Simulated scan of single mutants.
Amino acid sequence: MPPIESRTGLDSRAGTALFLKRWLRNPFSMGAVVPSGRLLAQAMARATFAAMRGRDGHVIELGAGTGEVTKALLAAGIPAHRLALVEREPELAAFLRSHFDGPRIVEGDAARLQALLQEQGVASVSAVVSSLPLLSLPAEVVRGIVHGVFEALPCGGALVQFTYGPTQPVPRALSQELGLVGTRGPRIWRNVPPAVVWTFRKPAGA
C-alpha cells in the first residue's frame, strides 16, 4: 500500500469536532452530523479507483469536508498529484490545506465546477467522487452540480456518490434526462447512518 501523502497526525477527533460545528450552523449543507466512516470512505475509494483506472486526468472530490474520503482515496493508490479537492466552506478548506500536502485544494462551490476547473487549469478529469448531500439540496442546485460533473467527465467517465436514503442519490428524472446508468453497491450497515455507494456513468452515445 502506498504511503498517504498527508501531514503527520491528521486528527480525526479534530475533524469530527469541526464537522459537527459546521453541521450545527447549517445542517442541510452538511447532510450528516459526523464525517464519512472508515468503511464508507473505503467503499467510495474502491469505486473511484475502479472508475479512474486506465484513464488520464484528475480525480475530483466534491465536498471533501475534513478529508476522511481523501485519506481513503490516497490509501487506495490514487496519486496525490491527481487529486483535486473541492470544498465550499472556507473553514473546511483551510483544514484540508493544513493536513494534506499533495492534493490540490480548490475552495469553491461545486455548482460552479466547470469554472473552478478552468481557473485551476485542470484540463482533463478521470472520475468524480462526491460526498455532497444531494438529497437535501434544492433541485436546481443538484441539477447544476450533476450537469457540471458530466460536462467535465469524458465519455464513460463515472460519478461516485453515496447516499443514506433508500433511493438513488441522483434523481431519476435527471439521470434519465442525461442518459445516466446507475449501479448500486451494497448497503454499508456499519456506517452511521448506514449508507450505499452508487456509481453513475453516461455511456457513449447517450
Score class of each variant (00 low, 15 high):
48 T>D: 14
126 S>V: 11
111 A>Y: 05
155 C>N: 15
117 L>G: 10
98 S>P: 00
104 R>I: 06
28 F>Y: 10
146 V>L: 07
15 G>N: 03
106 V>H: 08
14 A>R: 15
57 G>C: 01
60 I>H: 13
145 I>N: 07
17 A>M: 04
196 V>F: 02
150 F>W: 04
29 S>A: 15
183 T>E: 14
59 V>N: 06
17 A>R: 15
144 G>M: 13
190 R>L: 13
46 R>Y: 09
26 N>I: 01
90 P>Y: 07
148 G>E: 09
187 R>I: 05
163 T>F: 11
203 P>R: 05
165 G>H: 06
11 D>T: 00
73 L>G: 08
138 P>Q: 08
87 E>S: 07
14 A>H: 05
136 S>A: 12
71 K>G: 01
185 G>P: 08
56 D>Q: 15
139 A>M: 08
200 F>S: 06
103 P>C: 02
140 E>W: 05
34 V>M: 07
135 L>Y: 05
127 A>L: 11
132 L>P: 00
206 A>V: 04
51 A>F: 12
45 A>Q: 00
28 F>H: 11
184 R>Q: 15
149 V>F: 03
167 T>N: 11
58 H>G: 00
21 K>S: 08
74 L>P: 05
41 A>I: 09
121 G>I: 12
48 T>R: 13
130 S>E: 12
163 T>D: 13
123 A>T: 14
72 A>M: 08
117 L>V: 13
136 S>M: 07
129 V>D: 06
206 A>T: 11
144 G>V: 04
6 S>M: 09
68 E>S: 14
46 R>A: 12
133 P>A: 05
120 Q>P: 07
155 C>T: 15
195 A>H: 05
101 D>L: 02
136 S>N: 13
59 V>I: 06
63 G>C: 10
150 F>R: 02
29 S>R: 13
113 L>E: 10
41 A>R: 12
188 I>R: 07
23 W>H: 14
130 S>V: 11
137 L>I: 12
107 E>I: 03
108 G>V: 06
120 Q>R: 15
145 I>Q: 02
158 A>V: 07
141 V>D: 13
105 I>V: 15
158 A>W: 03
144 G>W: 05
29 S>I: 04
101 D>H: 00
25 R>P: 00
163 T>A: 10
105 I>W: 09
92 L>Y: 03
39 L>Q: 10
30 M>W: 03
52 M>F: 04
20 L>T: 10
105 I>P: 03
204 A>L: 03
29 S>H: 12
94 A>H: 09
150 F>Q: 02
162 F>L: 07
169 P>Y: 06
78 I>L: 10
99 H>D: 00
206 A>Q: 04
134 L>M: 15
114 Q>H: 10
22 R>I: 07
183 T>I: 06
50 A>V: 08
179 G>S: 01
116 L>W: 02
131 S>W: 10
154 P>R: 11
136 S>V: 09
198 W>M: 01
139 A>S: 04
29 S>G: 08
21 K>V: 00
111 A>V: 09
186 P>V: 10
168 Q>M: 12
187 R>D: 02
167 T>G: 04
148 G>K: 14
24 L>H: 08
60 I>W: 14
177 E>I: 08
11 D>G: 01
14 A>I: 01
65 G>C: 02
136 S>W: 02
57 G>Q: 12
29 S>L: 14
